[in-house]
Each structure stands twice: as structure tokens, then as C-alpha cells.
């Protein structure tokens, strides 16, 4: 930052959620004045890394810094998103930026949340191809372009958790309602022409909670950083379940 002339710098007010469960203090918001180049539209992750240079004890996850690994799901000025692909021009309101952990999950430290519940729900939907054939290392299972297109909008999920932690139904019943991310994954395999376990998968989702706690609030759709539509996938599952029950 030293080489930038003062006129090209602006100061951003950044407020970061701090919490260390081993210390006997309540969570609090710590304020930073971060100097940023005026011309460049930095990402929220860039700002977090600048803040960490001032205070190395801030804890958060990051890896690819290009929106594909799903590490840095955060609550940014009240909305869930990925730090690395949320530009300040979208996020900052009145020169203020508040960064909190994803809501609804236990906080390990600062912005780092415990994803166990989220991953457990993912594992429940058997997120892998089930076929009645043995793995064949000599050829691919045939699939038409049209059949493959049904997976578009489903397979791209990066498991960042932005959707499920924005979902009120997941907040109330995180153990029983699978949440949008896991359900999107469930439908990704139901929709795959190569998968032969549709019946088994639907049967597992039939109870009153797993799927039917989705009330179509669509927070998941509005926050998904990959532009995916879990509500639609859940709607498809619901349709199949209803059809099955008739």
C-alpha cells in the first residue's frame, strides 16, 4: 500500500465479528479502518486479508479466491455470499462493511463456523452415483446430450453453505430438514440418467421434514454464488414424491 499516493486511497470502515469460545468474553464486532485503492474494485476477501495483516488473529477460511472452492461463505452486510467474488461495489453500503460468520451454525472462531451439520446432511442423501451395474473400466455409461443437460444447474454446487444457512427452515430444523444444498445434491443424482436408485432415494425423502419443510422462501436462490436454484430442484423432488404417493 505504501507506494500508492494518498489521493488514490480511500478508507473503508470494516466491522468484523470476533469470537473465541475459549476466552470468557461475548462475541463482539471489531472495527478496522482499511486503506484501499480507490480505482480498484477489491473483493471482500481482499479486505479481510488486509485486516488480517493488521490483526493476524482474525480467523477465516479461504483457498481458491476465485469462487470455485466454497471456503469463504460469509455473511456480508447481512447477505450470505463468497468473500472472494463479492466486489466492494456490490457489498459496501454508506462506506460500511460488516462481515459476520454464516448464520445458524456454531462458531469455532470469528468467521469460521462448524460445518459438520451441513456436511452430515449432505452425506445423508447418498451423494454418489448408484447403479445396478458394476464399475466398467472399459467404457463410459452412455448418456445423451439432452440427458446430460438435466444436470446443468445441479452438479456445479461448491458446498459453500450460503444457501442452507440463509434458510429459515434449516435454522429451525437443521437435524431433520436436509436443507437446500443437500436437496440440490439429492436431485442431482435423481436427475442423472445413469443412476438407478431413484425409488430408494425418494423413499428416503418421504417423511414430513426432509424435503417438505421447504416452504419456497427462496433465500437459497437469492444468495447462491453460483446462480443455482435449489428451490426448483426441491420442487421437482416434491412433484415426484406426490406422484409416487398417488
Amino acid at each position: 500500500m505504501n507506494s500508492i499516493a494518498a489521493s488514490e486511497i480511500k478508507t473503508l470502515k470494516v466491522s468484523i465479528y470476533r469470537y473465541d469460545p475459549l476466552k470468557k468474553e461475548k462475541p463482539y464486532m471489531q472495527d478496522f479502518d482499511i486503506d484501499i485503492p480507490a480505482e480498484k474494485d477489491l473483493m471482500v476477501l481482499d479486505v479481510l486479508m488486509l485486516a488480517k495483516e493488521e490483526d493476524p488473529s482474525i480467523s477465516f477460511r479461504r483457498s481458491c479466491r476465485e469462487g470455485v472452492c466454497g471456503s469463504d461463505g460469509l455473511n456480508i452486510n447481512g447477505k450470505n455470499g463468497l468473500g472472494c467474488i463479492t466486489p466492494l461495489s456490490d457489498a459496501v453500503k454508506s462506506n460500511k462493511l460488516a462481515i459476520r460468520p454464516l448464520p445458524g451454525l456454531p462458531v469455532i472462531k470469528d468467521l469460521t463456523v462448524d460445518m459438520k451439520q451441513f456436511v452430515d446432511q449432505y452425506k445423508k442423501v447418498k451423494p454418489y452415483l448408484i447403479t445396478d451395474k458394476k464399475v466398467d473400466t472399459k467404457q463410459a455409461i452412455p448418456q445423451t446430450i439432452q440427458e446430460r443437460e438435466k444436470l446443468d444447474g445441479l452438479y456445479e454446487c461448491i458446498m459453500c453453505g450460503c444457501c442452507s444457512t440463509a434458510c429459515p427452515s434449516f435454522w429451525w430444523n437443521p437435524d431433520k430438514f436436509l436443507g437446500p444444498a443437500a436437496l440440490l445434491q439429492a436431485y442431482r443424482f435423481i436427475a442423472d440418467s445413469r443412476d438407478t436408485a431413484t425409488d430408494e432415494r425418494l423413499e428416503q425423502l418421504e417423511d414430513a421434514f426432509s424435503v417438505f419443510r421447504c416452504h419456497g422462501i427462496m433465500n437459497c436462490v437469492s444468495v447462491c454464488p453460483k446462480g443455482l436454484n435449489p428451490t426448483k430442484a426441491i420442487g421437482e423432488i416434491k412433484k415426484m414424491l406426490v406422484k409416487r404417493a398417488l
Binding site: T137, T144, R194, D195
Partner: peptide
């Protein structure tokens, strides 16, 4: 090729050709 087909059989969603191949 064996490794590729194994992965496809495990579910990797490869794009497809008109003939339904990878």
C-alpha cells in the same frame, strides 16, 4: 483410459457427444 472410464462410472458428469460418448 481405464481411470477415465472408472471415474465416469463413478458419476463424473462429463459433457457428451451426439453419440452419447464423453
Amino acid at each position: 483410459p481405464e481411470a477415465i472410464f472408472e471415474l465416469e462410472n463413478m458419476g463424473l458428469p462429463f459433457s457428451r457427444t451426439e453419440e452419447g460418448k464423453i
